[in-house]
């Protein structure tokens, strides 16, 4: 028994939505960043899977996923640096305490 691209897409969708849920709910900035990583991973999985089944010879999706990993690594590095800076400034990483945008 084997599975095709649809199963991978569904898996990626589930992972993405779990990450989205976490990013929308978690009050801790670190947890939000971790959820974002989960979403990125879901996207990477999707890219690789679709590339594997649609354009197996050119590996286009693998390259896209590789660069996505680069961007995600940069993002998490900057994000965590921001969290640290925020922590120094406000002594908290709780997103619901950070409401400077309040209108």
């Amino acid at each position: 028994m084997t599975v095709g691209p649809t199963a991978f897409m569904a898996l990626a969708g589930v992972l993405f939505c779990i990450g989205l849920f976490g990013a929308l709910t978690k009050k801790s900035a670190v947890m939000v960043l971790m959820s974002l990583e989960l979403m990125t991973n879901a996207v990477n999985l999707n890219l690789v899977a679709i590339s594997r089944f649609m354009t197996p010879a050119s590996m286009a999706g693998q390259f896209a996923a590789a660069f996505n990993i680069v961007v995600a690594a940069a993002e998490i590095g900057l994000g965590l640096a921001l969290v640290l800076a925020l922590y120094r400034l406000r002594k908290t990483v709780e997103l619901d305490r950070i409401d400077r945008l309040k209108g």
Partner: peptide, 10 residues
């Protein structure tokens, strides 16, 4: 309008 980023995100 609480200024919380996740509210806007939602």
């Amino acid at each position: 309008q609480a200024g919380r980023v996740q509210g806007y995100q939602r």
